[in-house]
């Protein structure tokens, strides 16, 4: 049985089509990533699956329970960490955890093992009010509160937004450990580099899935050769690349520009000659593997000119 399955979900807010034609399946014990920018519809999908709002179209189930008919059962087996900080700021760390345990008719002692790994990191501060915690610790406490009733499915809505790269890595290590315990995880993120840490991902934009697959297959689906291009003047290089008619797309990517060429119209040698002609120095053109962000931009088909 899939942990989550959704079939052609649609949702409107007034005239705004927040989601349309969303289908997905999260296998048991999988980490499934929803990858896309703010406003793409990620939170709406979480709210439907967590039985907080109703879909206008389509059906969905979590652990085999229907999101409409069996909503009460779903709430018992799901742990939900909403995007905005969801804890009680005026309660202490321990009070928050105790509260969430009592809502699910359990106690911290009874289920201590299920949160132990993560809770131990914040336990020295258990008497501090949640409002006075740093960002990284709030995130750990929120995760503990979502885990205290031993859910079989976790919904994590942008748990790493605004979190620095080191803490983000730590957080993903915690998720891998939860996966090993058999917990299925649906997690959303605007950071494309986190996609490779998921078993399967859906790229989402404007309420629609652009593609759903394993990160490896999404990268294989990039349908042109990708070149990394550098020179001593990166800003001029970008505008010169865009002026070349043989260039199909050109985006800044950290220390290099990622470029695709129009088939038959231009090859890497032509490009090198063109850039030398424009007096670029230390030109370096290399064929590279695309990453998920390249794929996202190709699929979203946005031209940046």
């Amino acid at each position: 049985m899939n942990a989550v399955s959704a079939n052609l979900i649609g949702k409107k807010y007034g005239k705004l089509q927040a989601l349309s034609g969303i289908s997905l399946e999260v296998g048991e014990g999988d980490i499934f990533g929803l990858i896309g920018p703010d406003g793409a519809g990620k939170t709406t999908l979480f709210r439907i699956l967590a039985t907080l709002i109703l879909p206008d179209e389509g059906t969905a189930s979590v652990c085999g329970f229907d999101v409409i008919k069996d909503y009460a059962k779903i709430r018992k087996v799901v742990g939900y960490m909403p995007g905005r900080f969801s804890l009680y700021q005026d309660l202490t760390v321990l009070e928050n955890l105790t509260f969430f345990a009592s809502v699910f008719h359990t106690t911290v002692e009874e289920n201590y093992d299920s949160v132990k790994d993560i809770y131990q990191q914040i336990e020295p501060f258990k008497n501090r009010r949640a409002g006075a915690l740093s960002g990284g610790m709030k995130q750990k406490l929120a995760l503990c509160c979502a885990l205290i009733h031993e859910p079989s499915v976790l919904f994590l809505d942008e748990p790493t937004t605004g979190v620095d790269p080191v803490s983000r890595k730590e957080f993903w290590t915690m998720l891998q450990r939860l996966k090993q315990r058999g917990i299925s995880i649906l997690v959303s993120t605007p950071y494309m580099d986190e996609a490779s840490l998921c078993d399967r991902i859906a790229l989402i934009q404007n309420g629609k899935f652009l593609k759903t697959d394993t990160p490896q297959n999404i990268i294989k689906g990039f349908d042109s050769e990708l070149w990394s291009v550098r020179s001593d003047h990166m800003s001029k290089l970008l505008s010169d690349l865009r002026l070349n008619e043989g260039v199909s797309s050109s985006f800044a990517f950290g220390d290099a520009h990622h470029v695709t060429l129009k088939n038959g119209k231009c090859n890497s040698h032509d490009l090198s000659v063109y850039l030398d002609g424009l007096k670029h120095t230390n030109v370096c053109i290399q064929k590279i593997e695309p990453n998920v962000e390249d794929c996202f931009m190709q699929l979203s088909g946005k031209n940046i000119l």
């Binding site: 920018p37 703010d38 605004g162 605007p190 800044a252 962000e293 940046i304």
Partner: peptide, 20 residues
């Protein structure tokens, strides 16, 4: 202060062009 958090990858790049 973190001007591009959560922004679409294409728009994030347009934003940097404004910075330049």
């Amino acid at each position: 202060d973190e001007p591009t958090g959560g922004v679409d990858p294409a728009v994030r790049r347009q934003f940097w062009e404004l910075i330049y």
